[in-house]
């Protein structure tokens, strides 16, 4: 059983029957990454990201299928999956963390709220603690979460061959855009 599943089960057990009234999810979250380098710019987008936010505890999780990233060029997509993130060995990236200022988010009031997010980001089988900022926008009971941050390729043991090192940025810009709805069950 994976860490993310254990945490989700714990969320349910610890929060009792009221948990569903406070859990917001999406299965259509967007994560885009962008690499700006001297030789070329590379962009990819994944539109089928799973994410869940528990308003009571602030627990915030993401699960991202690496093979679901789509690139403009087929060759880039092949290299990304086969050589860099090795998606056959590490099919998913995950984030398991917390919104540390969740108490400031008022689901009953439309508006824009700052979000402070901390947790473990796992990519390519390597887990690193991250601390990032973002925003939550409450719109009629849904929560639109956005964040832009940078990930250093070397931190996650992703090896770029010397021949193409000028094609890929050392730090990749990651843009997260999710629209979370109340889980009704």
């Amino acid at each position: 059983m994976t860490k993310i599943r254990i945490i989700l089960i714990s969320l349910v057990l610890l929060s009792g029957i009221s948990v569903h009234a406070q859990k917001y999810i999406t299965k259509n979250g967007n994560i885009r990454f962008y690499s700006e380098a001297p030789t070329e710019n590379i962009e990819a987008i994944n539109k089928q990201v799973n994410s869940a936010l528990d308003l009571a505890s602030g627990d915030f999780v993401f699960r991202v299928l690496m093979k679901a990233f789509e690139f403009e060029k087929a060759l880039m997509q092949e290299h990304f999956n086969e050589n860099y993130v090795e998606s056959h060995k590490f099919p998913n990236a995950t984030f398991v963390g917390k919104v540390t200022n969740i108490s400031e988010l008022d689901i009953s009031r439309n508006g824009l709220y700052d979000a402070k997010i901390e947790g473990d980001l796992t990519i390519h089988g390597v887990t690193k603690k991250i601390s990032e900022k973002g925003t939550f926008e409450v719109v009629d009971g849904t929560i639109k979460g956005k964040s832009v941050f940078f990930v250093a390729v070397a931190d996650y043991d992703i090896k770029i061959p010397r021949a193409v090192i000028s094609n890929i940025a050392e730090k990749i810009e990651v843009t997260v855009d999710v629209s979370l709805s109340l889980l009704n069950n």
């Binding site: 994976t2 993310i4 599943r5 299965k27 089928q48 799973n50 699960r63 991202v64 299928l65 690496m66 093979k67 679901a68 789509e70 998606s87 099919p91 998913n92």
Partner: peptide
């Protein structure tokens, strides 16, 4: 088929 995210099998 692009994989399974422990919830759904994802097809593109």
């Amino acid at each position: 088929c692009v994989g399974y995210n422990e919830t759904d099998v994802i097809i593109q």
